[in-house]
């Protein structure tokens, strides 16, 4: 199970700083310890989060096993022009979850 919620105001004035707040559902299994049966639990974490705006990267985060389960990630961007903000979470299985938000910029 892997879903994500993003909170961002959909409209902003040109030059305004917009905050993007996200929560993703992920166990962030840090692994490398034996389970009850003595088998090593493999690491399974979101290791990378990336945001683009109008196709250009605006923010990136490398996550280690010290980030909590169901991690919260928030950052900011300056509203430049109307366009899509694309968010991508990628985990150790190679799976990438994508969320796209439209930011409408006035003025």
């Amino acid at each position: 199970m892997f879903n994500a919620r993003v909170t961002m105001k959909p409209e902003a004035a040109k030059g305004e700083i917009v905050e993007i707040r996200t929560v993703a559902r992920h166990p962030m299994e840090r692994g490398n310890y034996p389970d009850a049966a003595g088998r090593m639990v493999p690491r399974m974490i979101i290791h990378s989060f990336r945001a683009t705006y109008g196709g250009e990267e605006i923010f990136r985060m490398e996550l280690g096993p010290g980030v909590s389960a169901n991690p919260y990630i928030a950052f900011t961007t300056v509203a430049t022009e109307t366009g899509d903000i694309v968010l991508e979470w990628t985990d150790d299985s190679g799976f990438t979850l994508t969320r796209t938000l439209r930011l409408t910029v006035a003025g």
Partner: peptide, 13 residues
């Protein structure tokens, strides 16, 4: 704060 509340992921599901 619903923007940070992880339980909202379950509500959405």
């Amino acid at each position: 704060d619903e923007a940070r509340h992880p339980g909202m992921l379950w509500v959405e599901q």
